[in-house]
Design a protein around this nucleic acid. Sequence first.
DNA 1: GGTTTTATGTCAGCCATGTTGACCAAAATT
DNA 2: AATTTTGGTCAACATGGCTGACATAAAACC
Lengths: 174, 174
Amino acid sequence: MADIKPIGKALFLREEELRRGIEMMFFAYRDFTGEADSILAEQNMGRAHHRAIYFIGRNPGITVSELLGILNITKQSLSRVLSALVETGHVVQHTGPEDRRQRLLYLTETGNALEARLTEVQGRRFAKAYREAGMSAVEGFHRVLQGLLDDRTGQQVDELGQARQSAYRSGDDG
Amino acid sequence: MADIKPIGKALFLREEELRRGIEMMFFAYRDFTGEADSILAEQNMGRAHHRAIYFIGRNPGITVSELLGILNITKQSLSRVLSALVETGHVVQHTGPEDRRQRLLYLTETGNALEARLTEVQGRRFAKAYREAGMSAVEGFHRVLQGLLDDRTGQQVDELGQARQSAYRSGDDG
DNA sequence: GGTTTTATGTCAGCCATGTTGACCAAAATT
DNA sequence: AATTTTGGTCAACATGGCTGACATAAAACC
C-alpha cells in the first residue's frame, strides 16, 4: 500500500484551504460593500437602506412581508428603514388592490436612480472580477456560493428567480 | 461580419449575471456568518469579537496596529472589543520587547478553544460547498473572490500569507 | 538634553441597525 | 361575532461602527 497519504499533512492542507476561504470571504465582502457604503453615507443612509432599495427595485410591488422573508430581519427594523425611504422620496407604498392590508412597495424615480448608481458600482466590480477570472471560474464561483447557502435560502433564491422570469407584477414601475 | 452579436440582449444578460453575483454574495455571506453569530451570541459576543479572535489566532503576537490594518476599523472600535476579550480571558496582551508602546496579542487557551469552535462551523460549511462544487469550482471561486478585492487588500492578503509561511512570532502561543 | 513630533492605545459619547416586547388597527377567515 | 393575519407604532436595549480628546512611549530635532 505505497499510495497511503500522510494524513496529518493532508488535514493541515485542508484546514489551510478552508481558512483561506473563510478569510477571502471576509475581505471580499468587505470590499464589495465598501464603495456602495460610501455613496450611501453621502445620503445619510446605510446598508439596511441599500438592501431595501435593491430588492424593491428588483421586485416592484413586493409586499413588506415578502421583503422581510428575503432580508431575514424583524419588521421593526425594516419599518424604520422603509419609513425613512418613504420620507426621502425613494420609495412609495400603494395599498394592495386585492388585500388592502398590504402595502406594495415601489421605487420612485429618485429611488431608481440611486438603485442604479449603487448597482453600477457593485456590478462594475463583479464585471472586473469575472473578466479577470474567466467564464469557467465564474461558473465555479456560483457553485461554491450556492453550496454555502442554508437549504432554506437556496430554495428562496430559486423561487425569486422563477418569479422574476415568469411575470412582472402589475404596477407603475412594472 | 456575420458574428456580430445582438448587443442589447447581451447587455441584458450581462446585467442579469452581475445581479446574480451581487445577490448570491449577500445571501451567502449572511448564511456563512449565521451559525458563528449564534455561538457568539451565547457568549454575549458579536462579529467584531470573532474577527479579532480569528486574526489573533492566525497571527499570534500581532500588534494592535497590524490588526487594525487587517480589519479596517478605527482603533477605538477595536480597543473596545479587545478590552472585552482580555476581560473575559480570551486574549492576553504582552508589551512589545523592542518597541514598548506596542501590545502584542495572543489567544489564551479559552480563546483558542472558542476560535477553534467558530472556525470549525464555518470550515464545515466551506468543506460541504467545496465538496459539492468540486475542485475546479473551488479554484474559480478563489479567483473571482480575489478579483473582487481592492488592490490594497489583495496586497495585504499576499503579505499575510507570506508572513505566516516564513516565521511564527516568538511568544507563548508560538 | 529638553522639546516637539509621531506612534500607539484608551476613554467618552454619538449614530445606525439589529434585537424584544407590548400594543393597536384593519382586513380576512371561520 | 370572534379569531387570525398583516402591518404598524412606541419603547428600550445591544452591537459595533464613528469622532474627538487625551495619555504615554519612542523617535526626531535643535
